[in-house]
Design a protein around this nucleic acid. Structure first.
Length: 202
DNA sequence: TGCCCGATTAACT
DNA sequence: GTTAATCGGGCAA
């Protein structure tokens, strides 16, 4: 990871000014905090405007405008009219790429997350994009905010991590692209990755 | 304008 | 295994 993409361990804009395919795996093991509440990123998915599963595929709209803006900002959207999902915008302005944050290992502000989620099970606090946003109190008001400014803090991982990849979840287009990345063996994943040692299905 | 669908989740049978 | 909750975008009319 380039030195200049860090400041006091926090990721700066240049970290996100790269392809989603470089940024996505580099985010596994990074720390994501909102008002000091959050944890280690264990699962993400990459989306790019050249591919039909991305919100930006059909061009800019009011909802996805942030994806077409500068990198290092958050794109928050409403899913199924109910939940919210948070993405980190990547690449050069106008390229409309983003990394969906799908799951965290909770490390900070456990009490606040349990209160917001209404459950005690640590494993389920942030295991899914909608659950994660509820636990971290991410709302539509955060859409377009910069990741290097309050209330956000993102720190680079401090130790090597074993990363696995596979098909993205919950989409019907471009289902074969292996653009989902995860922390191998983590119990905080929204869903397990298929074991690489098992026999592959044709 | 109306209809269908979706980067989801929780509560069902 | 199935389904409801709930709303913006895309497309047909």
């Amino acid at each position: 990871m380039a030195e200049k993409s860090l400041k006091d361990g926090q990721l700066t804009r240049s970290f996100f000014d790269r392809s989603v395919h470089e940024v996505a795996p580099d985010l596994i093991g990074a720390t994501f905090l909102v008002c000091g509440v959050g944890g280690l990123i264990v699962e993400v998915e990459a989306y790019h405007y050249t591919e039909p599963a991305a919100h930006s595929y059909a061009g800019p709209t009011v909802r996805n405008a942030v994806m077409f803006g500068p990198p290092g900002h958050v794109y928050v959207y409403r899913s199924y009219g109910i939940h919210r999902c948070v993405n980190f915008v990547c690449e050069a302005e106008g390229s409309a790429g983003a990394v969906l944050i799908r799951a965290l290992m909770p490390t900070a502000g456990l009490a606040a997350m349990r209160r917001r989620r209404g459950i005690n099970d640590e494993r389920l606090l942030c295991a899914g994009p909608g659950r994660l946003c509820e636990a971290l109190a991410i709302t539509d008001a955060h859409n377009g905010a910069a990741l290097d400014k309050v209330p956000f803090r993102v720190f680079a991982r401090t130790a090597p991590v074993k990363i696995v990849s596979g098909p993205r979840i919950g989409i019907s287009k471009a289902v074969d692209l292996p653009w989902r990345y995860g922390w191998a063996g983590s119990r905080f994943l929204s869903r397990p990755f298929r074991a690489a040692t098992k026999s592959q299905r044709a």
